[in-house]
Computed example of a mutant assay.
Amino acid sequence: MPNRLPTGITVLDRQLDGGVPAGSIVLLNADPASQSELFLYELSAARGTLYLTTVRSEHAVRDALDRTTARTGKPTIRDIGADAPLDHANRLVGALPEESNLIIDTLDPLESSDSARYRNFLNSVQTHMANTGGLAVLHGLTGRSVSENRDMTEHMADVVFDLETEVRGSEIVNRLAVPKFRGGRAPGETIKLKLEETVAVDTSRDIA
């Protein structure tokens, strides 16, 4: 079994036999109105993390980390969303040290780049993660407008997390599916989660 890197999210690591294979690219697909950032915040507690933000400002991300009650680390945060985000990301990724996390939140502005340039970027990330034994988590939104390059991202990713958020009457239901898991065994069923102050298992029963 390849070396596993814990995500820092206990419920997820238990389902994934200890974590994600080192060197992997993970795509986290999530609704823009969900609490999916909690996954990213808790991941930053697992090891040194470079957090690239493309939409929110560096200050906004830092403030959110300070206010959350989830377990977090002290990631290096860089705002790359102003001009030429793909070029900024390329330079910063190349300097990542061994066994580090790379978080890109959100991926959508990078996916809007020319397909050939974006493909080169994904290959560069994949090569760097493989060489350093790190973990890249790309946060992609599944809202009203999804980039045509999302198919390419899903194909290149080693692991795909699909977070679905549904409002059922007075209940908000979050389910995480892992349809793709290279180098390991993907859970056969979705995981029902509570996304409130932390990421936790939701033990409530579904109401038909």
Rank of each mutant, 00 (worst) to 15 (best):
L16R: 12
A60G: 05
H88M: 02
I207T: 05
Y51D: 05
I77F: 13
F121L: 04
S115Q: 00
V146H: 12
V201K: 12
M129C: 10
D114S: 04
I103C: 07
S147P: 07
T10W: 06
L176F: 12
L28D: 13
E189A: 15
L86S: 02
G94L: 10
D63S: 15
N174M: 01
P187N: 03
S112H: 08
R4F: 09
P32F: 14
L28A: 12
T76L: 10
L141H: 09
D162L: 12
R117D: 14
T49P: 06
L176P: 00
I172R: 05
I207A: 11
L138T: 08
D108V: 02
E154T: 03
L193K: 09
G133N: 06
L110W: 05
N29W: 05
T127G: 03
E189S: 13
Y41K: 00
R91I: 02
V178P: 14
R205H: 08
D79P: 05
E58W: 02
A177P: 01
R78V: 06
V146Y: 03
L176S: 12
L110I: 11
H88G: 06
P109F: 06
S170G: 02
G23Q: 11
P179E: 11
H139C: 01
L12R: 08
A116R: 15
E42S: 10
K194F: 06
N123R: 13
E37C: 03
P2R: 13
R71T: 15
L141R: 09
